[in-house]
Simulated assay, not measured.
Amino acid sequence: MIIPLQKNVRQLLFDCFQIQDLIMGTLQEVQTLHGHTDRVWCVSWSPSGALLASCSGDKTIRIWSKEGDEWICKSVLTDGHTRTVRSVSWSPCGQYLAAASFDATTSVWSRKSGEFECLATLEGHENEVKCAAWSCTGSLLATCSRDKSVWIWEVSADEEFECASVLSTHSQDVKHVRWHPSKEILASCGYDDTIRLFREASDDWECCNTLKGHQSTVWSIDFDKTGSRLASCSGDKTVKIWQEYEPGNPESVATEDNISAWKNVCTIGGYHERPIYDISWCHLTGNIATAGGDDSLCVFQELPSPDPKNQPHFELAARARAAHGQDVNSIAWNPKQEGLLASCSDDETVKLWALSKD
Rank of each mutant, 00 (worst) to 15 (best):
C298G: 07
C16I: 14
A323L: 03
R229H: 04
F314V: 12
F300A: 01
L340K: 01
K263D: 11
G25C: 13
T290P: 04
S165Y: 04
C42L: 10
H313V: 15
C344S: 02
A100C: 02
H170W: 00
S156N: 03
C93I: 07
H170R: 01
Y271N: 13
V350H: 13
A317P: 00
V166F: 00
K237N: 14
T194Y: 00
R319H: 06
L13Q: 10
G325F: 13
S101E: 08
L13G: 08
T226H: 08
D103I: 06
R178C: 08
E126I: 06
H214M: 14
L316Y: 11
L77H: 01
V43I: 12
I63S: 13
S107E: 07
P4S: 08
P275T: 12
G124Q: 08
V177M: 01
S228Y: 10
D58H: 00
H176A: 06
D203N: 14
I276T: 06
Q215Y: 01
G80C: 15
V253W: 00
E67I: 11
G286A: 11
W153L: 03
L119Y: 11
C73T: 02
F17G: 05
R319G: 02
E256P: 03
K183N: 11
C298H: 06
K351Q: 11
I3F: 03
T105R: 09
G114H: 07
G227A: 02
H324G: 08
G227N: 00
G80Q: 14
W71S: 02
F116P: 01
Q6W: 00
